[in-house]
Design a protein around this nucleic acid. Structure first.
Length: 183
DNA sequence: GCAGTGATCATA
DNA sequence: ATGATCACTGCC
């Protein structure tokens, strides 16, 4: 079963860390499923977080962030790249987790390009109906394999640019775990 | 190291 | 209507 609203209805930094090792599952046009293990995420905490889109109030673009947890927030960046986020926390709190890497897809723009994701998913609840969801892997990632760093590309955000809200698990080690788990 | 890309948003 | 901005990528 996939992660639902309860899992995402928590602080974004907590969700971002716990999504490491989870599977991002997409149902393709041929209805086959692709699974990609999430290895990099970033947390955007809410209106007080100056790197977060929600910090400037609600707009047409970011309205989904203010809605219920567990919905996809997808927007276009630099005119080319779709960014895939999952909304977290209480309704009215504009928080989300950006999925920056999963499986062989390294980088947030490559994740969406690789999976064929665009604005059609924006606002949909993560799940079977949307054709894209997250599910537990059952694998516990050792805490010491997780690196926390400042978020990428948010230099404009003052002190918030420095907060260690990017979570990365070493991909080499991740592949080792999966192999040990017998897959 | 930096150009490309175009929707979005504030300003008018 | 116009101009600045931008949670990035690929090629120099």
């Amino acid at each position: 079963m996939h992660y639902g609203r309860d899992f995402f209805d928590r602080p974004a930094d907590r969700v971002a860390r716990e999504l490491l090792g989870a599977r991002l599952v997409v149902r393709g046009a041929d209805s086959r499923l692709q699974r990609h293990v999430v290895f990099e995420t970033e947390a955007y905490l809410g209106a007080h977080d100056l790197a977060c889109h929600g910090s400037k109030g609600m707009t047409k673009r970011n309205a989904v962030m203010f809605g219920p947890a567990g919905h996809w927030y997808v927007y276009l960046c630099y005119g080319i790249h779709w960014m895939l986020n999952i909304v977290t926390g209480a309704e009215g709190v504009p928080a989300a987790v950006l999925i920056r890497g999963a499986g062989e897809l390294v980088g947030p723009g490559r994740v969406t390009r690789g999976l064929g994701i665009d604005q059609a998913l924006n606002g949909l609840a993560a799940g079977r109906k949307a054709g894209l969801w997250l599910e537990p892997s059952g694998i516990e990632i050792p805490r010491r394999w997780i690196a926390r760093t400042p978020r990428i590309g948010v230099g404009y955000a003052g002190v918030w640019a420095e907060k260690p809200l990017r979570y990365v698990v070493d991909r080499q080690r991740l592949s080792t775990i999966r192999w040990q788990a017998g897959r």
